[in-house]
Design a binder for these strands. Structure first.
Lengths: 199, 199
DNA sequence: CGGTTTCACATACGTTGTGTATGTGAATTG
DNA sequence: CAATTCACATACACAACGTATGTGAAACCG
């Protein structure tokens, strides 16, 4: 248990990011005090500003981590169930909708993230979920299964629809009841990209 | 020019809302000081808190106004050009994308609005744009032109896709170049709702 | 090994902004 | 015309961010 300097620092960063996920998810970005946040993990604001520059820097790190987890989980789910590229696209899309049902993802990635860090397209982490969707679409375009359309545009629209749907579902009175409706609508919309499609 | 008390108050509210649109659009909600905001129109924070309760109240009023303008413009555009219900749906969708190209709409309605006021589904103003889209879809469902799908879900997905697309377009290097791509992708996606559709 | 330097983090301070409690003067009411 | 309302201004308390400075232990070096 040598505890080198770099290891200590990595641990500090991890603790702060973890605390950020909790606090931002529960109270929202604006209502979260950096004094309380750092104290909750036995540190002070000094550690925060040294490691992340400012409050936004911590949010960026948190968003990056959550985004990566979402992408990884969605990819794993698509991998687990087999299927061709088209089915993978749908599975991933549905996985995003389901992932975005958690308050943590909604508050941090969908609401505060864009407001504080700007549109995801400019995020340094460059939105791994979006990249995965573009990958899928590119393969489909290569085999000519989807109409000739801008890959990036289609990916943006699809993900935007999925995540926005999740916000609506979560805000509804009975999320469990409307979630399938959202998934069905999403599937129909996506099918609009196919060149041939019987229901 | 009697200047009744109620008229004065309405004027004050209008001035504050107008100032809010400017400041929120330019500097964002969080970076806007209510001291500066009110001073810019020759008032103090007293007027603000008396009329809107708090800072969020002003944002809600601003969002409501902008949202209503968007819906009105989109409806007018759909009216101006003729077409059946399906074409109206597309025209309105495209109108939303184009409206959301302005920094004012992006910053206020798409970024700060949801972050501060929560998901649009719970807004008291109840998102007039969404209502218009649902109207269109309901008529289309009535005549059996679209697949049997939850109207609300489809409307949410469509608007989510449209507005998200606008954020992406605006953030890109050459918005004019990618805007048509976004519109094309949107049209394709929407066509996924149709029961029969040749390209 | 001992002195020096680095650096991760803590402490202290100034500034800004929100919300609230209270004051005030003009418009309304009886 | 005296009393009251009320739209808004003034004054205050408190919270939070960012920065400037301090500190002690680890790393470096001869």
């Amino acid at each position: 248990m040598a505890a080198r300097r770099a290891e200590m620092m990595a641990e500090t960063r991890a603790k702060l990011i973890a605390a950020g996920r909790r606090a931002f998810a529960e109270k929202g970005y604006a209502a979260t005090s950096m004094d309380d946040l750092t104290a909750a993990v036995g540190l002070t604001r000094g550690a925060l500003y040294h490691n992340f520059g400012d409050k936004r820097g911590l949010l960026a790190a948190v968003v990056d981590q959550v985004d990566e987890e979402m992408a990884t989980r969605a990819a794993a789910e698509a991998e687990r169930r087999g299927g061709d590229d088209w089915e993978k696209l749908l599975i991933e899309g549905v996985a995003y909708i389901e992932a975005a049902m958690t308050p943590e993802v909604q508050r941090i990635v969908l609401l505060d993230g864009p407001a504080v860090l700007g549109d995801p397209s400019n995020w340094p982490s460059q939105n791994k979920c979006l990249a995965a969707t573009m990958d899928c679409l590119a393969r489909l375009a290569g085999t000519g299964r989807i109409k000739p359309v801008s890959i990036e545009a289609a990916a943006r629209l699809l993900n935007g629809a999925a995540l926005n749907a999740a916000l609506w579902v979560a805000a509804s009175e009975s999320p469990d009841a409307v979630l399938p409706e959202a998934i069905e609508a999403f599937t129909h919309l996506a099918s609009g990209l196919l060149v041939r499609e019987p229901a």
